[in-house]
Design a protein around this nucleic acid. Sequence first.
DNA 1: GCTTGGCACTCACGATCAGCGAGTGCCAGA
DNA 2: TCTGGCACTCGCTGATCGTGAGTGCCAAGC
Lengths: 342, 342
Amino acid sequence: MSEDRRLAVLRAIVEDYVATEEPVGSKALVERHSLGVSPATVRNDMAALEDEGFIHQPHTSAGRVPTDKGYRLFVDRLTGVKPMSAAERRAITTLLDGAVDLDDVVRRSVRLLSQLTRQVAIVQYPTLSRSTVRHVELVSLTPTRVMVILILSTGRVEQRLVEHGAEVSEEQLADLRVSINQAAAGERIAEAIQALGRLPEEVPPDAAALARGLTTALTEAMSDHRSDERVAVGGAANLARYGDSFDTAVRPLLEALEEHVVLLKLLGEATSGDAVTVRIGHEGPYSELSSTSVVATGYGPADQAFATLGVVGPTRMDYPGSMAAVRAVARYVSRILDEGHQ
Amino acid sequence: MSEDRRLAVLRAIVEDYVATEEPVGSKALVERHSLGVSPATVRNDMAALEDEGFIHQPHTSAGRVPTDKGYRLFVDRLTGVKPMSAAERRAITTLLDGAVDLDDVVRRSVRLLSQLTRQVAIVQYPTLSRSTVRHVELVSLTPTRVMVILILSTGRVEQRLVEHGAEVSEEQLADLRVSINQAAAGERIAEAIQALGRLPEEVPPDAAALARGLTTALTEAMSDHRSDERVAVGGAANLARYGDSFDTAVRPLLEALEEHVVLLKLLGEATSGDAVTVRIGHEGPYSELSSTSVVATGYGPADQAFATLGVVGPTRMDYPGSMAAVRAVARYVSRILDEGHQ
DNA sequence: GCTTGGCACTCACGATCAGCGAGTGCCAGA
DNA sequence: TCTGGCACTCGCTGATCGTGAGTGCCAAGC
């Protein structure tokens, strides 16, 4: 019994099961794939695969279904790099090139990814922590009210409204604008927070109170963890395809999609480079999602991987296709971030 | 046969059906509601209601289910203003008061609304058209690259990157910042676009090219209709409750949620004042969504109603509750927008 | 020693059918 | 105008049964 053929059988089972969503039997297998052996032989291989835990029989006299372990082997050893089709490449470039700002890039990526994979797509907004401060702008809205605008190297813009007790003159604002930017511009978040903390003592006493108000707002905006946790989700409509396994696959996922914290944990740590992470069924952190898989990878300018994107779907999903799409989109988004924001 | 009692019967049918999701019979009705008459009498009323098309019998020997027309009558004549509970009021204030910017207000509103109604919530971002320009900021990112930031009276911030052929000095930028703001600040979008169009001819010739680039970007950002079309959606997990009617209610809605244009059309025109619009089943613009209803209302500072928010759900939904929640949230959001941005 | 055809066996699935009961419409009497 | 009674309808549930896909095992063949 050749090892190679047994793997070929596993691959065939996974492919057929993903395509048909029905347990696959030995006869159907030899018909649809040119394995060059008879159903009986395949049955022997199947028995062996089942002993090793790669496939499973829902009940006697039924076909076989891959187990999580089977999918794992399939992903690790049986799937090559599936190149994107020309049409898909075109879709990626045309859709993403039109993006006008960071938000738009993220929104478009989600849409693109969900369309390419026909799966639920998740894109994490670039995190603040690794980015640097590009510029801080102060705008007086009313005499006593200042809007603080924080622009980061990723293109992200955060805004805060500061209510100052007293009237704020344009000169004061101009001075503070200069000193704040001197202290923070070009710095990483962590350093910028420190520098801003010292600032109020370094300005003329009459500006100290205002400086304190402004830097507090800025620091808040920078360390605001909510920003780190933001994700965009799309393609929930694709879940409709799995109407049959509503309770095991659709419902839990639908519930998880509302909880962005859960999604972030699902996506996992950003991996840099070309590595695409695949988390299959129970390998993930949530038992309720034990019949869903995640295909994700990090992205970011110059391989810094400061955020993660990926797709989520039932374990019974097209892994090669999803992995290729995730990788391609991540690459292209990274390039856009590279170009667009220096 | 008193007209009043017949309406009471209709109300009872709607309430019971919404609660149990099952056709309701005459016997169950008199048991659960103190109608003061016998099942037989109720049956007579039911027959009359059915003749008039307010209720419908899935099949002989089954209970009755309200028709769209029945729900309509229920909403129009049988439902008073259901006050929010203290806990709900508290939820609204505590959740919404923490919002830091416009995006956050919208996101929180969606979440809040979906939690209050246990329904899918939709909140349209305030549209640009009626708002005015608060301030325009120019930030040089690199010597030849300028980021244009547009701040509107609603608190919305739009940003565009402008690549200028030649190097841009800080003085040029400062001059243009002044003249652009003189031309546009305080103006409505439409007027601002006109004023900016004239600007390049009114500045020194050597700044004209740069001015043209910047005003073009600004005009684009202002007339960008995509901004008008943005909506936030939340609470899709609530659809899980309707797992039984997956194909008629959940699937079409799930698909619609991806299409923001569809959602906007669903929400309909913003109504100002306290009017809450209810669109029941086939009354809506999409035949695929003939078994879903929409409860929506306009919101915005000082009754200007420049955007719409609401909930979508199966026709079999809690109308009084949804209407109350939608109204309450719209009011509170309007107040926040009023205060927060003058 | 694999591979293969044959064969008995298992068991989910679909169709058929009877009995049950919730619910109805109608009618006669209060 | 309401009510109790009564015959009738018909969807739902559960039981029964045949069908067929699929299996495991075995003995024969390459």
